[in-house]
């Protein structure tokens, strides 16, 4: 796994036979969480078809950073699947002591305008590990579709 320059952030997908792999990187956990949420939104929706007219508050708990990240992504998933909110990106407002709070940007899901990319069933723990290197954080996550 090649490391990006310190301070860089971003996300991408990787190949998986049955499911979808997402990868996120950033200078700290906050950036990592935001990038991972963006990657999940892009796995679910063609985000260019969604406008950022609304917000939704999110909060999650988890002892280890990995568990907290999964819980955070499950909130993004539930916003779409359970609350009909089409997400584009997320912002972390606070992250400490096993708790994360943030804001999801998007709009109410409208199947006539919004293009669904994949219906994600769940976020897995498969091979999950947040790697750290020179202040950079990086994670790969398999989504069950």
């Amino acid at each position: 796994m090649a490391w990006n320059e310190p301070g860089e952030r971003g996300h991408d997908t990787f190949e998986h036979t049955a499911d979808i792999g997402i990868e996120a990187w950033g200078p700290g956990l906050e950036a990592l969480f935001e990038e991972a949420a963006g990657a999940l939104a892009e796995a679910m929706l063609i985000v260019d078809t969604v406008e950022e007219t609304d917000t939704l508050s999110m909060a999650a708990q988890g002892e280890e950073p990995e568990e907290l990240l999964i819980a955070w992504l499950e909130e993004v998933l539930f916003a779409f699947e359970g609350q009909d909110f089409a997400p584009v990106r997320a912002r972390v407002d606070s992250l400490a002591d096993g708790e994360v709070a943030g804001t999801l940007f998007g709009e109410p899901f409208d199947p006539t305008r919004h293009a669904v990319s994949a219906v994600v069933k769940a976020v897995t723990y498969h091979g999950l590990s947040i790697e750290r290197h020179n202040g950079q954080h990086r994670v790969r996550i398999v989504l069950d579709v």
Binding site: E63, E64, I70, E74, G82, K121, A122, Y125, D144
Partner: peptide, 17 residues
């Protein structure tokens, strides 16, 4: 459906501990 997915997600947390 979402019922089964949620049960699995909930218990994956329980099982980590």
């Amino acid at each position: 459906r979402g019922f089964g997915h949620q049960i699995c997600s909930d218990f994956l947390k329980t099982m980590q501990k």
